[in-house]
Computed example of a mutant assay.
Amino acid sequence: MSSASDESEPTHPASLSREETSQISITAHWSGPLPPPGTLAAYENALPGSAERILAMAEAEAEHSRALEREQVRSETSLTAAEIASERRGVWLGFVLAVFVIVVSAYLMVSGFIGVGLGLISVGLISLVSLFIYGRNHPRS
C-alpha cells in the first residue's frame, strides 16, 4: 500500500531537477543609407549584383535629397526677394501718401482753411509716427 500512497503524495519542488537556461541578446544599430558591410556582403552572396544595386539606390537617394534642398533654398531666396520688393513698394506708397497729405494740407491752409489743413497734417504725421513706432517695437513673426 505504500506504493499507492507514494503516487498520491505531491512531489516536492526541491526534489525536481532544475534545468537552467540562459539567453543572450545582441543588439546592433546602424545608421545611414547603406546597410552594414557584413549585411551588404550577405546580400551580395545571396544575390550577385545586389550590392551594386543597393549602392546605386543610395546614390540616387542622396542626389534626390540634395536636389530637394537646392529647391528649398531657391524658394526661400525667391520668397525673400518678393518680401523685399513688397517692403520697397510699401515705403514708396507711404512716401507718396505723405507728400499728398502735406500738399493738400498746405493748399487748405493757403486757401483759408487753416484748422482743417492743420488737422489733416496732424492726423497724417501722428499716423506715420505711430506706424514707425509700432513697426519697430513689434517684429514680424
Rank of each mutant, 00 (worst) to 15 (best):
A81K: 07
E69L: 04
Q23W: 11
G49N: 12
V123K: 04
L120C: 00
A106K: 09
F95C: 08
H64W: 01
A4Q: 01
A81H: 06
L34Q: 02
G115F: 09
S111T: 14
V110L: 14
L97I: 12
P10H: 08
E52C: 05
S22L: 14
V104N: 12
E52H: 05
A42L: 13
A14W: 15
V104A: 14
M57W: 10
L55S: 12
I133D: 04
G38A: 15
S127P: 00
N137L: 05
V103N: 11
P35Y: 05
G49V: 02
A82K: 07
I26V: 14
S122Y: 09
R140E: 09
S3R: 13
R70Q: 10
I121Y: 07
R53P: 02
I133T: 01
N45R: 15
Q23C: 13
E20G: 09
I126Y: 01
I114F: 10
E61W: 01
A106S: 12
E52Q: 14
A81F: 00
R89Y: 05
S130N: 06
S141A: 11
V110M: 13
A106M: 10
S31P: 06
A46F: 11
E71D: 13
T77C: 03
R89N: 03
N137P: 00
T39I: 11
E76G: 13
A4R: 02
S78N: 10
T39F: 05
A14H: 10
L40V: 01
V123M: 04
A51W: 00
A51K: 01
R66E: 04
S17E: 15
V123L: 10
P48A: 12
R66K: 02
R53A: 13
S141E: 11
S15H: 08
S5L: 06
F132S: 00
E61I: 00
F100G: 15
E20V: 15
N45Y: 08
L16H: 12
T77S: 12
I102P: 00
E44N: 06
F100Y: 15
I121H: 03
T80N: 12
A14R: 10
I133F: 04
S25R: 15
I133M: 03
R140W: 05
S3W: 13
V101Y: 01
A42N: 11
P48Y: 02
V99R: 15
S122G: 09
S130E: 09
S17A: 15
Q72L: 14
A106Y: 14
R70Y: 08
F100D: 13
E9T: 06
P48E: 01
A4P: 05
V116I: 12
M57G: 12
I54N: 05
T11C: 07
L120G: 03
R66W: 00
L131C: 11
P13Y: 07
G94Q: 02
L131P: 05
Q72F: 14
L125E: 02
A62K: 08
S111M: 14
R53V: 03
D6H: 08
